[in-house]
């Protein structure tokens, strides 16, 4: 009896050892794999261009998901983070859809080489600003300072401006209660929804509740820019 019992115990132990070994191997593969997984530069110009909105959003949501405080060791977790809000988002833009100014100093080398995407393609936490890097929705363009002007320390205005633009869209514009709100802007240069609507750098008010659903335009429709209707003579026959 006891021999049979010992045999059973040995079988169990062997099975347990095998299980532990397999588990340990899986753990090693996962941990090492995570360490050596290529991260930066996954969404290169090639990857993002020509694969459509869906593929791009998927790729980026993968990126974005890893850029959370949860992946940081406890001691490195930020405690006093500047979180972007719509107010700060708007303060950097002259009107809805305007290219934002660069609110921080630009390294002299970057000022020449325009390697802004080194940080802004993927995002991440920047200790010296205590903030998360906003992610560009168009990493395929890299003559960055063409559109984004540096906001120098504020010199006296050359001349005052009377320009105003209060055309910011309101939130919660769903046609029906609980329905998906339509996209209030065109997708031109903003093909990657999650760049602004998910991740720790996204303005709070416009963060998406469901970034795991990556086919955004399935439910949220973007408007086309429709030129004003003009009646052409003789159009009605």
């Amino acid at each position: 009896m006891s021999a049979a019992k010992d045999r059973r115990t040995a079988v169990w132990l062997r099975a347990l050892r095998t299980l532990l070994f397999v588990g340990a191997m899986i753990a090693v593969v996962v941990v090492v794999g995570e360490q050596i997984r290529p991260r930066h530069g996954e969404t290169t110009a090639h990857a993002t261009h020509g694969h459509g909105v869906l593929a791009q959003v998927r790729a980026d949501s993968h990126d974005v998901r890893f850029a959370t405080p949860l992946t940081l060791p406890a001691h490195a977790r930020p405690t006093d983070v500047v979180v972007r809000t719509l107010a700060s988002y708007r303060s950097r833009r002259a009107y809805p859809g305007a290219p934002p100014v660069v609110p921080h100093a630009i390294d002299p080398d970057v000022f020449r080489t325009q390697d802004c995407n080194a940080c802004h393609e993927r995002g991440g936490y920047v200790e010296k600003f205590a903030a998360w890097t906003p992610i560009t929705p168009h990493p395929q363009w890299d003559n960055c300072l063409q559109c984004h002007a540096r906001a120098e320390s504020t010199p006296a205005a050359f001349a005052a401006s009377t320009f105003t633009s209060d055309a910011w869209p309101s939130l919660g514009r769903a046609a029906l209660p609980g329905g998906p709100p339509p996209i209030p802007h065109t997708l031109q240069l903003r093909e990657n929804c999650l760049a602004c609507h998910a991740g720790p750098a996204a303005p709070l008010e416009i963060r998406c509740t469901h970034p795991e659903r990556t086919n955004c335009v399935q439910c949220h429709v973007a408007p086309a820019t429709v030129p004003a209707f003009t009646r052409t003579a003789g159009a009605s026959r």
């Binding site: 998901r65 959370t68 405080p69 949860l70 405690t79 983070v81 998910a198 963060r207 970034p211």
Partner: peptide
């Protein structure tokens, strides 16, 4: 579970 970064950051970060 989906690590919705938005929610996570907002929920976990005090002083915001």
């Amino acid at each position: 579970a989906f690590t919705s970064a938005a929610t996570a950051a907002a929920s976990l970060v005090p002083g915001v």
